[in-house]
Amino acid sequence: MDNWDDFRFLVALSKAGTMTAAAKMLGTNTATVSRRIDRLSETLGTPAFVKTADGWKPSEAVREIISIANTFDGELRSAMNTNSQDKTNQLVSLNVGSVPIVTSQVLFPGLRRHGDMLDGVSLTFSDRIFREGLGENDLVIMYGAPESGRVVTRRVGQLTFRLYGWKGGKPTGEWVGLAQEHDEYPPMQMAFDTFKCPPRMRVESFTALYDLMLQTKLPGPLPDTLAAQDSELVTIKTAHEPFRGEFWMMFHESRRGDPAMRKVVDWVTRSFQDVDFDRVQQSRAG
């Protein structure tokens, strides 16, 4: 592989999973990505990527090359960010991928409370649901412990979920919930066991679920942080204990020394600590 620029196309497609998304990351077009990957495959004498139902996956022939390229890319970003933080006033940009409920209920309030911790850092937030690895993100926050690999992982906090209904609401046996692919998620299982039927309507996220509950006045599962914002919501007694979902963050190990990454990691941790503190205060007030 004589052209070092080819590494960019390998890394981009391995992160994005589609030619279109890789082209967007690289600031080029889909045809160019396809052509460069085909050229790499010809050089290797074997396909560099394999098309699957979940997108393009690296073949065994390039997995180690991509791993080395990712490490180099991370170390280069760390060095550049260190230089930017030390010698210039230029903002360092990082992409944070997170499940929507964490973004809205933990990270956004964290910006209001502790935005000063992100001095010199510009963040781009994106929804991340059911995807593996970092993808195009510098840091990812996910439900449950990530699989091991060349990443740094850390448990950062938890959110508590219960079933909620409305004050004065008449039980109808109906409820609303998340989309079918979330049915195995414990808050949904709690609702299935309690109502003994599928949800009447479904949506993709807890924030959308709250809006749906507000309009239909039907019960459903919600995180305490979101339910606490509406005084008309009340908990529904069930045979289940409240579900406490653990959330983890991960980033590539080559970014350990990145000062911008350290700032974001510290800020995410602090934002989750606020959720824990608020829960204790609410418990004492109750």
Rank of each mutant, 00 (worst) to 15 (best):
S126R: 15
S126D: 13
S126H: 15
D127L: 11
I129R: 10
R131D: 10
R131Q: 15
E132Y: 07
G133A: 11
G133F: 05
L134E: 00
G135S: 12
E136Q: 10
E136F: 01
E136W: 06
N137K: 04
N137L: 04
N137G: 00
N137P: 02
D138T: 06
D138Y: 01
D138I: 06
L139F: 06
L139H: 01
I141R: 03
M142F: 00
M142E: 09
M142V: 02
Y143L: 14
A145V: 04
P146G: 04
G149R: 03
R150W: 01
V151I: 08
V152C: 03
T153P: 02
R154S: 08
R154E: 07
R155S: 13
V156F: 02
Q158N: 07
L159C: 08
T160E: 10
F161D: 03
F161R: 05
R162W: 06
L163Y: 02
Y164Q: 03
Y164M: 05
G165E: 12
G165D: 15
G165A: 15
W166Y: 13
G168F: 03
G169H: 09
K170G: 13
P171L: 12
P171D: 12
T172Y: 13
T172F: 13
G173Y: 11
G173W: 15
G173F: 15
W175S: 01
W175V: 01
V176K: 06
V176G: 04
L178W: 00
L178V: 05
A179C: 13
H182T: 05
H182A: 07
H182W: 13
D183L: 04
D183K: 11
E184D: 08
E184T: 12
Y185Q: 07
Y185K: 05
Y185M: 12
P186D: 08
P186M: 10
A191T: 07
F192T: 01
D193M: 11
T194K: 10
T194Y: 08
T194Q: 08
T194W: 02
F195Y: 15
F195K: 05
F195S: 09
F195G: 04
K196I: 04
K196D: 07
K196P: 00
C197A: 10
P198W: 03
P198R: 13
P199T: 15
P199N: 14
M201P: 06
M201K: 14
M201W: 13
R202Q: 14
R202N: 14
V203H: 09
E204P: 02
E204Y: 11
S205G: 12
S205Q: 14
F206N: 01
